[in-house]
């Protein structure tokens, strides 16, 4: 999914199709556009394969808790498909990866990359922002101006931010 040499995900221009080798599938859609995609996927999963569809406004704690519970009970052959804005998809993918789901078992469709979560290593808070990569956002934890770096943690589902003006002399 990502370009091979960078941690920043590059989502394909076309949405993936369900893995034909899947035996059971969990589809999670975020927002109206994400849920439209999961509906299309549900129709494409071969007959006889159990499909569960979850719909959520965003990747909040309750939907992530359901995802965690489904993974805990899943058997090999299970696949996860995520659709929605990048920050929600990354947050859900992070939960799955931390629970031991393989990249090969996850397919994603990203409907927009406007919003991102930015991790501040100075105070460890995570800020949601619409700033672009190489742009700036204030940290919600320590109020420092953060430079949004082209570096993404798969486990946190967040971009790295660092103090933009650390080298300025006050």
């Amino acid at each position: 999914m990502g370009a091979e040499h960078t941690s920043v995900p590059r989502w394909g221009s076309e949405w993936p199709a369900p893995d034909p080798s899947a035996r059971t599938v969990l589809l999670v859609g975020f927002g109206a556009r994400g849920c439209a995609i999961t509906a299309a996927w549900a129709a494409d999963v071969p007959a006889g394969r159990p499909v569960e569809v979850l719909a959520a406004d965003d990747a909040d704690e309750s939907v992530l808790a359901v995802l965690t519970a489904r993974i805990a009970g899943a058997r090999v052959g299970w696949r996860l498909m995520l659709a929605g804005p990048e920050d929600d998809v990354l947050a859900a993918r992070a939960v799955a990866l931390r629970a031991g789901v393989l990249d090969a078992e996850i397919r994603c469709a990203v409907t927009s990359t406007d919003r991102k979560r930015v991790y501040c290593p100075h105070c460890r808070a995570t800020t949601t922002t619409t700033a672009p990569v190489a742009g700036e956002t204030p940290c919600e934890g320590c109020a420092r101006r953060l430079h949004v770096y082209a570096h993404v943690s798969r486990r946190a589902g967040a971009y790295l931010g660092f103090m933009a003006d650390a080298e300025e002399v006050a």
């Binding site: 080798s21 035996r23 059971t24 090999v76 052959g77 393989l102 090969a104």
Partner: peptide, 10 residues
Amino acid sequence: AAELGWPGER
């Protein structure tokens, strides 16, 4: 394994 949906990585 392939028939039962095991990805090659497993």
